[in-house]
């Protein structure tokens, strides 16, 4: 549901950057999306298609989403495991002294401009 909110913020940052870089058009945008960022890929593409028509530089921009796996680290046994599979509790030692290392963020990686 918050895909549109994220899209709006991403577009704002890219539009500013495109203006600063004197780009005529942004043709491609690549984002890294964490598995546990709460973003649903299909909704994100839909929101982006809707929002890009209302921009100055991004009307024909292609969007690439790279999914980053959610990985959690266990402080107790010092192992890592897949967050989406096991959640908060470590599957090796059943400790809950664990924290997420990757997979939470939505990162703007790069843009291609002309």
């Amino acid at each position: 549901m918050h895909e549109l909110g994220i899209v709006v913020h991403v577009i704002k940052q890219i539009e500013d950057l495109a203006t600063k870089q004197n780009a005529k058009e942004v043709v491609e945008l690549t984002l890294e999306v964490g598995e546990v960022s709460g973003v649903v890929k299909e909704y994100f593409y839909d929101a982006f298609e809707w929002a890009k028509k209302r921009t100055e530089h991004m009307k024909n921009c292609k969007l690439n989403l790279i999914i980053i796996q959610g990985i959690t680290y266990c402080e107790n046994c010092e192992k890592t495991y897949s967050t989406t599979e096991y959640g908060k509790e470590c599957p090796y030692c059943h400790s809950d002294k664990t924290y997420l290392i990757t997979g939470k963020d939505v990162m703007i990686k790069n843009i291609k401009v002309i």
Binding site: I6, H9, Q13, V106, I108, K109, K112, V113
Partner: peptide, 17 residues
């Protein structure tokens, strides 16, 4: 054909907010 440039951003989507 116009030249395509790649600009590395590496910035969180939430950074401006």
């Amino acid at each position: 054909m116009e030249k395509i440039r790649t600009i590395t951003v590496n910035r969180s989507a939430y950074a401006d907010n």
